[in-house]
């Protein structure tokens, strides 16, 4: 597990997509003038017949992908997460989820990846929007190895899926992609009995750092990586709550409707424990790089550790 990332998840996605496309001509990348931003250049050069450009028209891109799927293709509609999860959301709902077409929506540069470009380009709403639509799975990989494993899964899986990946290089969480992903399963990255951290996507690495900070203070935290947000691994969430007594979620998303909400919905009904949701508050964010915004909102090792300690202190105080 290293801090100095080299590759981005976007590159990992297109590399594996190309690998699969070379042996499966039904795989089609469909994009909306986002070839560069998705890093589909090599893919287009290698399999030009399996690359479809739709211009700056995300609604049409999703509708066209549904039509391709109804004619036996495996389309991957690729472009900025912000646009596919908002402007094209009705096409995602009707033409993909309701129609049950085999379309993968791959939102790149998700969350606050675009940094100072501002909230027009951020997708801090995407998980909430997608989670309220039946019949579409949601996956948010956390590093390069997991993105490779997720992409391999997608090239075989049949059915609607929304995948959100980031833009910049990310630190490594998983040493290899063989064990980095099973659909619908949480990954226990650290064992511990004092509390549980549940994180997804690019919030997993700071959560991992928080586990180290807490260990130094004598707190043994369990860490679950939750790459599949829907369907949620409810058993792992309930087991962690029962065994550790407190849960903190961490995500690159609004605190409304994302991972924290999904976990809270399960725990409130099945095993209520004290809980905190760390993410982006209900406001448009200031200008800044992705790292600056994570830091500003306390989505860092020390920030997460501080929230966890406050929650545990409060519990001890209450217990007397």
């Amino acid at each position: 597990m290293s801090d100095a990332g080299g590759k981005s998840c976007r590159h990992a996605f297109t590399e594996i997509l190309l690998e699969a496309a070379l042996s499966d001509s039904s795989i089609i990348a469909v994009t909306s003038d986002a070839k560069g931003s998705v890093t589909l250049g090599d893919y287009e050069r290698a399999v030009p017949a399996q690359f479809v450009e739709m211009g700056i028209a995300e609604q049409n891109t999703v509708g066209v992908s549904a039509g391709l799927a109804r004619s036996g293709k495996r389309p991957f509609a690729c472009g900025p997460a912000s646009f596919y999860s908002a402007r094209a959301i009705e096409q995602v709902k009707n033409d993909v989820a309701y129609a049950n077409t085999n379309v993968k929506i791959v939102g790149v540069s998700g969350g606050v990846s675009y940094g100072a470009l501002g909230s027009t380009h951020h997708s801090l709403h995407d998980i909430a929007f997608m989670r309220a639509i039946p019949n579409i799975s949601i996956i948010v990989p956390c590093d390069v190895a997991q993105t490779r494993a997720v992409t391999r899964f997608l090239t075989k899986h049949v059915g609607p899926v929304y995948v959100r990946i980031g833009r910049g290089p990310v630190p490594e969480v998983y040493p290899d992609d063989l064990t980095a992903f099973t659909f619908g399963k949480a990954y226990e990255l650290c064992g511990g009995g004092d509390c549980t951290l549940i994180a997804s996507g690019e919030a997993v690495y700071p959560a991992l750092q928080a586990v180290g900070e807490l260990a130094a203070a004598g707190i043994r935290a369990r860490l679950l990586d939750m790459p599949t947000l829907k369907p949620l691994d409810e058993d792992s969430v309930v087991t962690a709550a029962r065994e550790t007594g407190a849960v903190v979620t961490i995500e690159e998303h609004s605190v409304y409707g994302g991972l924290g909400s999904a976990v809270a919905e399960v725990l409130a009904q099945k095993h209520a424990v004290p809980m905190r949701i760390i993410g982006f508050p209900d406001e448009f964010v200031p200008a800044g790089s992705s790292a600056e915004l994570f830091s500003y909102y306390g989505i860092t090792g020390p920030g997460i550790a501080a929230t966890v300690r406050k929650l545990l202190d409060r519990q001890r105080f209450r217990r007397g």
Binding site: I28, G63, V64, G67, L68, R70, S71, Q91, D95, T101
Partner: peptide, 25 residues
């Protein structure tokens, strides 16, 4: 039925996708 419709403005894009697939094949 090939695709659920009712929200207007969706059908042509889906038809475009089907037509592209037909040409590819």
């Amino acid at each position: 039925v090939e695709i659920p419709t009712g929200a207007l403005g969706h059908g042509l894009s889906v038809g475009v996708g089907m037509a592209i697939a037909g040409k590819l094949d």
